[in-house]
Design a protein around this nucleic acid. Structure first.
Lengths: 347, 347
DNA sequence: CCGTAATGAGATAGCGCTTTCCCGTATGGT
DNA sequence: ACCATACGGGAAAGCGCTATCTCATTACGG
């Protein structure tokens, strides 16, 4: 492949210096004209600078600005898995809000590995982002938790801002997802629909989100006289849901009326497992999930779940982090049970 | 909310200078110890520096490094919509590959607005990213296309690298998605299955991806004696698919056996529309899509589609961009027809 | 033993910006 | 007419780094 492509000589990008020279003004004046400064600049000069910048196709070097100003326009976002709709919806919210604030988002994926998460936080800290948003799911008792906290503390004491998306983030700001209450409300509604005998497909013990949802669900059942007869703990993913459900079926469903999956992607996987086992979800065994990702409207039957306004969560996480002093709404995010056909009224 | 939180005084992050002082060596030696340099450093000094860095919790300022080195470790990624699984899968691939190369990804969403896209490219250029990956869908004849191309040319002539994900990207590098061939192959297979009368739900004319897929599908049909009887062009989204299908049904399906949606999210929306109209997808009217996003395995019936290895596409886009000189595989990405139950054999 | 070549630490000149600080000039109050 | 005061442009001092250049020290061949 010979390089007979376009003969574009590699030229360095125009610097502010070039612009100033072209406009016949000083560096200072050029700088002041191109970014609002407190100082006024003669309109004629300003126009000259603007014209020169346009002519040279000048684009300010953000790194240089960051160094000079001592502050960046970056927000760093950490999620477990970008392709997971739970996280990608949230990320979309963060990006949208960041855009409004003219901030740039850098994104990284922990792949659910807390070691990696810690590394990423360290690396990302090098960017000196204004904000760091951690949406990757926390684990109880992880050996890296302390190190992570220390790292974030250091980041904060350097003027950075941290926001978690979670239910409890130690002493950091957090968008509270009321997993417990949501799951509890769901359980009550299911009891109302006539269900009594349940199983749960959830994540490994220690994943806080999973634990809380399970605890809430259990509490709701107990209050209403239902029983949680079985629990399986596969991966916290679609395939995990499929496997968990398959296991449940193989071991015999005997009498279980409804399976609660700790999140929607698992629920969707579980529904496929049910169907692949020759049963019909909703009819032979009901299914409920958590999150209300877009997909669940389109599976059959549509999935009963607990709605979290994920995009809004992303937006709020950023606002919360940016907020100067507690002026921002930090009530738990409103969750809502959405009953659909995967949990028909019984009897 | 009073601030009786932790009494963390806001301190500036440790600089390399601090580390050098702490270690009792020069700035140069500290720099050389902390990042490989061509020069060797006395092991004892090196250890001292490392210890000092650890003690001060030093994290190199990436902006400063970028300014000093004249090069960054950033890759900028532009997608249409982060929450759309088509893009989020791709993004996951880019991020993963970037991680391998120890690069940081900044992400922005065009929201399918070419004006915004242009703006974003300009802003992102300020970052001086090593690579810019454009995955947002291109439109034919968009008034902004020339400006975008000029902007990207400028970026390239400054040493930046550009990669598109698309079928034709002018003179830029691109991961080729063979939309046409994929759709054509799909059409042939559907003909083989006994289908003859088709409708298409696709995006607005001018969206290149949509156009190509439609053209390919049409070609495949013609070769096999099928007819494309109707075309609707709603939004290129899930809801668009739903609306388009609803419209088709309201106008009367009369004889249409299969609906081809130009992408999977639309197909999934279409299936819901079919069901909401009281019909059964696959049975009353078959449906096929394009992309093979994860969801389509879990809808009922599972969707026939054309598989694109989206994550791989993301990874390849980055490698392609990074690649120094055409050493990288730039054959079109392998697409593959995946027949599932949404298109049962006829007759 | 001396001269020369490696060796490697430190001083320093940038990188592309922002932001003080310094001044010359215009303004206005008395 | 005179001095205090804005006003606003330009010079220059950084910001936190890297990389070049200097220069003392060590090693070694003849």
């Amino acid at each position: 492949m010979t390089d007979d492509a376009v003969e574009t000589r590699r030229t360095a990008p125009a610097t502010l210096h070039d612009v100033a020279r072209e406009a016949g003004v000083s560096l200072a004046t050029a700088s002041r004209s191109l970014n609002g400064s407190t100082r006024k600049v003669n309109e004629e000069y300003r126009q000259r600078v603007l014209a020169a910048a346009a002519k040279l196709d000048y684009s300010p070097n953000l790194s240089a600005q960051a160094v000079a100003r001592g502050t960046t326009t970056t927000v760093a976002l950490l999620v477990a898995d970008i392709a997971d709709p739970y996280f990608s919806q949230m990320a979309a919210g963060v990006v949208r809000e960041a855009d409004r604030e003219r901030l740039i988002v850098t994104m990284a994926a922990t792949e659910r590995d807390t070691e990696r998460e810690l590394d990423l936080v360290r690396t990302l800290r090098g960017q000196r982002p204004r904000v760091m948003i951690l949406a990757a799911s926390r684990r109880e008792d992880d050996p890296n938790n302390d190190a992570l906290e220390a790292e974030l503390r250091a980041f904060e004491s350097n003027g950075g801002r941290v926001a978690f998306v979670s239910s409890a983030a130690g002493a950091f700001r957090a968008v509270q997802l009321d997993n417990r209450a949501g799951a509890e409300a769901l359980a009550r509604e299911l009891i109302d629909l006539g269900y009594r005998r349940f199983a749960a497909v959830t994540g490994a013990e220690g994943i806080r989100t999973a634990d809380e949802r399970l605890a809430g669900f259990r509490a709701g059942l107990e209050a209403g006289g239902g029983t949680l007869e079985r629990i399986v703990r596969p991966d916290f993913t679609r395939d995990g849901g499929y496997e968990g459900m398959t296991q449940l079926i193989e071991e015999g469903l005997d009498g279980i009326e409804l399976v609660f999956a700790a999140n929607d992607v698992m629920a969707v996987g579980a529904m496929s497992a049910i169907r692949d086992a020759g049963l019909t979800p909703g009819t032979d065994v009901a299914v409920a999930g958590f999150d209300d990702i877009p997909t669940v409207r389109d599976v059959t039957p549509p999935l009963t779940t607990v709605r979290i306004p994920l995009e809004e969560v992303g937006r709020r996480a950023l606002r919360l982090a940016l907020d100067e002093d507690g002026a921002v709404d930090d009530a738990p995010v409103h969750t809502e049970v959405v009953l659909r056909d995967s949990t028909p009224r019984r009897g």
